[in-house]
Nucleic acid binder design. Structure first.
Lengths: 341, 341
DNA sequence: CCATTTTTGATGTACGTAAATCAAATTTTT
DNA sequence: AAAAATTTGATTTACGTACATCAAAAATGG
């Protein structure tokens, strides 16, 4: 049987009320007594029954999810996963609210974060835009004692408690090795399509990609990055243009979210050119393209896992519990035709 | 606020005791009354507060994990993960016990399962040996109302509630495509090292591998399968032998757990031969081999995830709750040098 | 219509913790 | 040493559910 508060009281030779004061850091306990109780807690190996505690508190965790108002498949998917979590939330004693902010707008994000300092939710999750003002706003929240986790995109040098997302440098490196190996020893050019170099995850992917390319595949040279702003039409135009202008292109790495346009451009390219293509994010479009051979591999982060992980971590922080690190590591999924879910 | 049993009683116009009888399927309720209560439950959208319920029951879930007494890194890892779960178990109101049975011994496994029919734990997880007697024993447990999940290796045609493991056919297919693509258009032989063709997961991996090889890489031919019984020394001998006898070998697929011997054989092969190698299961040995270039890719199933998933599913079944399917899908990890955890 | 059986209601206790109140004991201050 | 302040104890209620008991009401059988 697990020890209870009564066992602590007996072991420490104090009353239940005193144990309660220590456990819930209420005032009115002398230092020596407090230590006596804490020793007893350690010695009998007491762990608070969180379920019973929350029942007694009538507590519901109120969490806020801040997501960018971006119109691409990935963000839609992320939103859907947050909504799914909201739907489950009553069962899990959580009360999750989403807050939409303009994409790539540090000032708006920082303002939203500062609003939350008043509201004081039990935890905040955000898709970070990597800017100093956002970092400062996050740090203020953290210093106010509110748990904060970043999702998908991290925040350089901030005090956030956790990052629920993939290692984007590793993702870029992996893409490079896959592309290099798939191309065998062939020599030629590689086109890179990104959303914007202003976002940290895209920058990091490119960084990793370029590093491995340089180290290991000297026969392949990276062309100047095409920034498609994650917009299908823009991506289509820019990629078509690049493909027609340069006929040395034998590989493409799409590290952003504008894959609809890319796929269109690849499909209406001159039939004689076989390209090896690696893209990020599994969506209906990329899935179809993978199956029909337009794309050779997809790197993916599972938005559902990221959302659930963020919530688990926030909950653990709110309860003062530890998390299982291995469980919260967001993995980079590599999909070929054969292992699609 | 979530509706409670009191709300049901009010809505249905019956007493709390009657609601309780319906909820916990106790006898002594007329059909019409029962239906009135059930309607009310549906209409106000009541969901039982599992935390409070378990608190009241003083319930601890007693689960049994049946693992094979196999001496390879993967099974050791699995065992370690089960032990980690055992360590966490008091906090999660679970009481997990492991049961070791001889590996590849259907009779022993079936006997162990039948013992559990007496003990009636709240759930059983097992690494299945794919045999009719095991299937029947599992079906008996299920028919007794005990939740059963298979882990790592599934059981053909059984009534088990869930399988916490990877799709091994997809794993084999993925290995084939990776190997084929890494080899570019080269022609030659591919050696396959397995543990034993008597285990279902190995058979399935081979099946998927062979299928894709035949469909898509006609230039590569698969040599007769080497069965190393997951034994390092045996694998070393057999692989060394094959490599020296056939010099057309350009690729190796190791789908079992005997990688230590394979790696040794690869390292002391004549230096001029560059092989492309795909192996299963991330262990210290395969990790080192991947980093030093002896192995080109590792396919992995995360034992920790499998164990935790199995427990979550068992708990959900025991509580009569549903699971989040996407969360319980065990993914096939593909590791290159660059995305090792 | 009475006796019997079945169904329903009313009520209390328990689970482990939180939180509050008030009295008693102890310490500190004057 | 008395007064004031602080610390501790004892006790109660609550959270939402499970489970048990006993009495009351309703349905059923003869």
């Amino acid at each position: 049987m697990r020890p209870t508060v009564h066992d602590i009281a007996a072991a420490a030779g104090v009353s239940l009320a005193t144990v309660d004061r220590v456990l819930n850091q209420r005032p009115g306990v002398r230092h020596v007594t407090r230590e006596k109780v804490e020793t007893a807690i350690r010695e009998i190996g007491y762990v608070r029954d969180v379920a019973a505690a929350n029942l007694a508190k009538g507590r519901t965790y109120s969490f806020v999810f801040i997501v960018p108002a971006s119109d691409n498949s990935f963000m839609h998917g992320l939103n859907a996963e947050v909504m799914a979590a909201v739907a489950r939330s009553p069962v899990e004693r959580t009360d999750i609210r989403t807050l939409e902010v303009p994409a790539f707008d540090p000032a708006a994000l920082a303002a939203a974060l500062d609003t939350l300092r008043i509201e004081r939710p039990a935890g905040v999750a955000l898709v970070a835009t990597d800017a100093p003002e956002v970092r400062d706003a996050v740090d203020r929240l953290v210093q106010d004692g509110i748990p904060v986790v970043t999702v998908v995109s991290d925040l350089t040098g901030s005090l956030r408690h956790h990052y629920a997302g993939v290692d984007n440098i590793a993702a870029g490196r992996t893409a490079a090795r896959l592309l290099g190996r798939f191309l065998g020893g062939a020599k030629g050019d590689v086109a890179v399509l990104a959303g914007s170099m202003l976002v940290r995850d895209h920058r990091e992917r490119l960084e990793g990609f370029a590093a491995v390319m340089a180290e290991e595949f000297p026969g392949l040279s990276i062309l100047p990055v095409i920034e498609g702003r994650d917009d299908p039409d823009m991506a289509h135009m820019l990629v078509s243009d690049a493909l027609s202008k340069r006929d040395g292109i034998i590989g493409v790495y799409s590290l952003g979210a504008g894959n609809r346009g890319l796929i269109r451009a690849l499909k209406d390219k001159s039939v004689d050119r076989a390209l090896t293509v690696i893209a990020h994010e599994l969506t209906d479009h990329t899935r179809t393209a993978l199956l029909d051979g337009t794309i050779d591999a997809i790197l993916n982060q599972d938005a559902g896992h990221e959302v659930r992980s963020a919530i688990r971590v926030l909950k653990a922080k709110a309860d003062g519990l530890s998390v299982i690190d291995a469980q919260e590591r967001i993995r980079l999924d590599i999909f070929l035709k054969d292992n699609l879910p």
